[in-house]
């Protein structure tokens, strides 16, 4: 396969195409292959009943990757000083596993105040097996169906209204930590609320449902499933919105804007001032005249 693309790329890049044509063709090839795989691959098993073999597979994975912190039966590990090394997992539900492992936060690479988002280590199949095992430890929120979180499931004519309503919920419940533009913010002791840009609809929904780490829980009984979907619709709408007011510099407010004004704005003014005040070139030729 690689040989074939190489040869194709070589032939294309010879002659009239530019020297990047090979790279472009390679990327196209990869995209087509990946896309075709995503379309044709068997649907994931999230909606299947968690049969015993999946749970067993999940338990096997759990013992290797998770048990050192969460205990062999997910009962959690408490240190001698009373601090929790890894919390107990009975009752956290499949949704928590799908969020934590699906965004790469778990397994943690090292202990710390907060598990950062990383590359995902498990395949879709392995994550659903892990989720099935943890869900078998105690009742907890399940992985949501796509209708629950996908704003496209809202009827077309109601979507604008949903976005407005979602904005109200977002500003009331989320902006205190995640900032008005959903770009995240700092918490004490090195913790932080992550940016919500580029996070998948499902993971946002699961985070609200399960309250990972310091984030509070927003259970379905109080913040209804449709209301969560409205929030996601609003988040998608501000992500897609044109930056009409210009570059937002990460939408972090006065810190990034102030840095820009001081370094670039005042820096340019200082540059001009230096130019104005510098002495102009002088000629030695004319001194005698």
């Amino acid at each position: 396969m690689r040989l074939l693309t190489d040869r194709l790329a070589a032939r294309l890049s010879r002659g009239r195409r530019g020297r990047y044509a090979g790279v472009v063709v390679l990327m196209l090839g990869l995209l087509v292959t990946g896309g075709a795989y995503a379309v044709l691959s068997p649907a994931q098993a999230s909606d299947e009943a968690a049969d015993q073999s999946t749970v067993d597979q999940g338990r096997a994975l759990f013992l290797v990757g998770c048990a050192s912190c969460h205990g062999k039966n997910g009962e959690g590990v408490t240190l001698q000083n009373g601090n929790q090394y890894g919390p107990p997992l009975a009752g956290v539900g499949a949704a928590a596993v799908d969020f934590q492992v699906g965004t790469g936060r778990m397994p943690m690479a090292r202990p710390g105040v907060q598990a950062p988002k990383k590359d995902v280590l498990y395949s879709e199949e392995e994550i659903s097996a892990l989720a099935a095992y943890v869900a078998s430890l105690g009742p907890g929120p399940a992985i949501p169906e796509s209708d629950a979180y996908d704003p496209l499931a809202i009827p077309e004519e109601d979507r604008e209204e949903a976005i407005v309503r979602g904005g109200e919920f977002f500003r009331t419940n989320c902006t205190a930590c995640h900032n008005f533009a959903a770009s995240g913010g700092a918490l004490p002791g090195g913790k932080y609320a992550p940016s919500l840009r580029g996070v998948s609809d499902k993971h946002i929904y699961e985070a609200m449902l399960t309250g990972p780490q310091q984030m509070p829980v927003f259970s379905d009984e109080v913040l209804k499933s449709e209301e969560k979907r409205d929030i996601i619709a609003y988040l998608n709408s501000i992500e897609d919105a044109p930056r009409y007011g210009g570059g937002n510099m990460g939408a972090f407010g006065p810190v990034s804007e102030g840095l820009f004004a001081w370094l670039v704005g005042i820096g340019a003014c200082v540059g001009f001032a230096v130019w104005i005040a510098s002495s102009s070139t002088r000629s030695k030729k004319g001194t005698q005249s």
């Binding site: 309250g211 509070p216 259970s219 109080v222």
Partner: peptide, 21 residues
């Protein structure tokens, strides 16, 4: 009641770690 939606809340509807505005 829940801000924005105005729905009343029962204690058992809330989970440990839940925040309601």
């Amino acid at each position: 009641v829940n801000d924005v939606s105005g729905t009343p809340i029962k204690a058992e509807q809330m989970e440990i770690g839940q925040l309601v505005n």
